[in-house]
C-alpha cells in the first residue's frame, strides 16, 4: 500500500494506482473527459492536470501513478484557468445544440460548461463541419460533437478487439473514422456509445424518444444468452428506448449487439395481447376467463380419460426461476406427472 496526500487528505491506495483513481477512492473530484478506469490511461483531454510537489510541470492525474509520500494538489488558480481554457476551446469547436441534442442532461461536456459557467467564448473560430453521416443502422456518429477523447477507439481495440475505428488526419482536422471514411461495419456492440462523453455517438434507436429527465431507469438482466449481463432499461412512456449497463457488474458494463440494441421486440406490434382459442381452424380472441376455463376443462378431461401421464409440459429457459419452479410444480402437483422438460437443458 502507498500513502499519499491529496489536497491535504491522507489517502492509502494500492501500488500502481493512478492519482486520478486514488482521488476517486478518496472522493475528491477531478474533472476528466478521456479517462475510463476500464481502459488504458490516455491523457488526452488534459482536464485532470494536477500539481505534484517536486514535479516541474503539471501532470495528468489519469496517467501518473502514485508514489509514497506524494503530495498532490488537485486545484489551484493555474489549474482551474487551464481547465476552463480547455473546456472553452472544446466549446469553440462544438455545435452547442444542446436544445436538441440527445445527450443533453447526460453529457460531460455540457456539465463542464455549466460548472465553468462558460456563457461567452474567447476562442470562437473555425468549426469542424461534416455533411456526411454514417449509414449504419445502429450508431449515429456526429463527429462535430466529438472531443477526440479516444475512448471509442480504445474500447473498440482494447476491449472488443475489433479496431473498427481509429483517428485519422492531423491537428484540428483529426477525426475518428472507420477506414477510408466508409460507413461503420463492425460487431455493433455499441461499447463506443457507452463510453462517449458527448453526443458524438448515440444509439439511433433512441433518438427523439425521450429526454433524460423523463427517463426511468430499471436495472435488470439481459434476456439473450447465458452470460447474464446486467443491463439498465431506459424507459419513457411505457417504451424501452435504450439499454445501458453499469461498469461495476460482472460484464463490466460491456454488452453485445443483441443486449444493447435487441430490445425492440418488447414493444413490437406483433406481441400477443389477448388469449386466443382456435375455433374452426382459426384463432379467435377471447377473454382470460374463457381461455383459462377452457384449458382447465380440457386438461381435466384428458387427465380423467387417459391419466396424468398423457399430459406433458415444456418449460422455458427464457422464463424466470420462479416461473419455471411454478411450471414444474404445476405439472407435478396439479397435473400429477413428471412429464416436464425444457429444450435447452443439455
Amino acid at each position: 500500500m502507498i500513502t499519499l496526500l491529496i489536497d491535504g487528505k491522507q489517502v492509502e491506495v494500492k501500488e500502481g494506482t493512478t492519482i486520478l483513481e486514488a482521488a476517486r477512492q478518496a472522493e475528491i473530484y477531478i474533472p476528466t473527459l478521456c479517462d475510463d478506469p476500464r481502459l488504458e490511461p490516455y491523457g488526452a483531454c488534459r482536464l485532470c492536470l494536477v500539481q505534484v510537489k517536486g514535479m516541474p510541470r503539471l501532470v495528468t492525474a489519469c496517467t501518473t501513478p502514485v508514489a509514497e509520500g506524494m503530495e498532490v494538489q488537485t486545484s489551484n488558480e493555474q489549474i482551474e484557468r487551464i481547465r476552463k481554457t480547455i473546456v472553452e476551446l472544446l466549446l469553440s469547436d462544438h455545435p452547442n445544440d444542446c436544445m436538441v441534442c440527445e445527450k443533453a442532461g447526460d453529457c460531460t461536456l455540457q456539465e463542464l460548461a455549466y460548472f465553468y459557467n462558460l456563457r461567452e467564448n474567447r476562442f470562437l473560430g473555425e468549426r469542424r463541419q461534416y455533411a456526411q453521416r454514417d449509414n449504419n443502422p445502429f450508431i449515429e456518429r456526429d463527429m462535430e460533437k466529438c472531443v477526440l477523447c479516444g475512448k471509442c477507439v480504445r474500447v473498440c481495440e482494447e476491449v472488443q478487439a475489433v479496431a473498427a475505428i481509429d483517428i485519422a488526419y492531423r491537428g484540428f482536422n483529426a477525426k475518428v473514422t472507420p477506414p477510408f471514411e466508409k460507413d461503420l461495419n463492425c460487431e455493433f456492440c455499441g461499447q463506443c456509445i457507452s463510453v462517449c462523453p458527448t453526443g458524438a455517438l448515440i444509439g439511433k434507436l433512441s433518438i427523439g424518444r425521450g429526454r433524460q429527465k423523463d427517463i426511468q431507469k430499471v436495472d435488470t438482466i439481459c434476456p439473450y444468452c447465458g452470460c447474464g449481463c446486467n443491463i439498465t432499461l431506459h424507459v419513457s412512456r411505457n417504451e424501452i428506448i435504450r439499454v445501458s449497463s453499469s461498469p461495476d457488474n460482472i460484464n463490466e458494463g460491456w454488452l453485445c449487439v443483441k443486449g444493447r440494441f435487441g430490445f425492440k421486440f418488447v414493444n413490437s406490434p406483433d406481441r400477443l395481447k389477448k388469449p386466443l382459442i382456435k375455433k374452426n381452424g382459426k384463432f379467435e380472441e377471447v377473454s382470460w376467463d374463457e381461455a383459462l376455463d377452457y384449458v382447465a376443462s380440457k386438461f381435466r378431461e384428458i387427465k380423467d380419460r387417459y391419466g396424468p401421464d398423457a399430459i406433458g409440459g415444456l418449460s422455458s429457459a427464457r422464463c424466470t426461476n420462479e416461473e419455471n419452479y411454478l411450471f414444474q410444480k404445476f405439472i407435478r402437483a396439479t397435473i400429477g406427472t413428471n412429464n416436464v422438460d425444457h429444450c435447452a437443458r443439455y
Binding site: 488534459r46 476562442f123 477526440l148 483529426a174
Partner: peptide, 21 residues
Amino acid sequence: TQTESCGKCVPCRIGTKRLLE
C-alpha cells in the same frame, strides 16, 4: 505546428488552431 499536431490533446489540437487564427 497546427498542421503537424497529432490532434490527441485539446490544448494543442484546438489551442494552436486558435493561436493561428
